[in-house]
């Protein structure tokens, strides 16, 4: 039996091209496409897209990466006599300073301005990516009913950097991951504002 509605064919086109469909559904689509020029056009055009972008000529070969990388690695490794362990130790120290600076910065008015003045800033950054919308002020979990409009997926750190604050409904843990004292959260946990 062939599928009768084109709208049933389109959602399956990608899986069709990847060979992810059951033989039965595949046969139904073949049959539909044979008699439907529009679906044939969508299927073949999409197939063409995949073929074109998969061609190695689409992406230029990297040229000077290796030499530049070697220089940068050496620049990092030199002060620690070239051992990775030494490098990690050095990095930990630098990292600690960076965190201190960041904390200091967050209290000296250098932080990214929030997209809405009344938003409560994030006190911790969720590990999972979050959603934001173009006109929204908050970042959300997937499926949060309080998110309106086309959404963009990005890392929580990027969302915070772009001035988004956590949604109070779905991102509670980013707001209150630590005990809140009457004076506000402890200084060292307020890394991100």
């Amino acid at each position: 039996m062939a599928l009768t509605n084109c709208r049933d064919v389109w959602p399956a086109i990608s899986d069709y091209l990847d060979g992810e469909l059951s033989p039965a559904l595949r046969a139904e689509i073949d049959q539909h496409v044979a008699g439907c020029p529009k679906c044939a056009s969508v299927l073949h055009g999409t197939q063409n897209i995949v073929r074109l972008y998969r061609d190695p000529r689409m992406m230029p070969a990297p040229t000077g990466i290796r030499a530049g990388l070697r220089q940068r690695i050496q620049a990092h490794a030199a002060p620690q006599r070239g051992t990775l362990r030494g490098l990690f130790t050095g990095l930990a120290v630098v990292g600690a300073f960076a965190i201190l600076l960041l904390m200091a910065g967050s209290y000296s008015g250098n932080e990214t301005a929030l997209r809405a003045a009344m938003s409560h800033p994030a006190y911790s950054t969720p590990v999972d990516p979050v959603f934001v919308t173009a006109h929204g002020k908050l970042f959300h979990r997937a499926g949060c009913p309080f998110m309106h409009g086309p959404e963009t997926l990005l890392s929580a750190a990027d969302a915070v950097a772009a001035g988004y604050a956590p949604c109070v409904r779905c991102m509670k843990e980013a707001l209150h991951s630590v005990e809140i004292t009457p004076q506000g959260p402890p200084l060292e946990t307020s890394l991100i504002r």
């Binding site: 020029p37 529009k38 044939a40 056009s41 969508v42 073949h44 055009g45 197939q47 063409n48 073929r51 074109l52 061609d55 000529r57 689409m58």
Partner: peptide, 12 residues
């Protein structure tokens, strides 16, 4: 729905 299946890879 224009059909464009015939684009040769040589175009690349």
């Amino acid at each position: 729905f224009a059909d464009w299946r015939d684009i040769p890879l040589e175009e690349l």
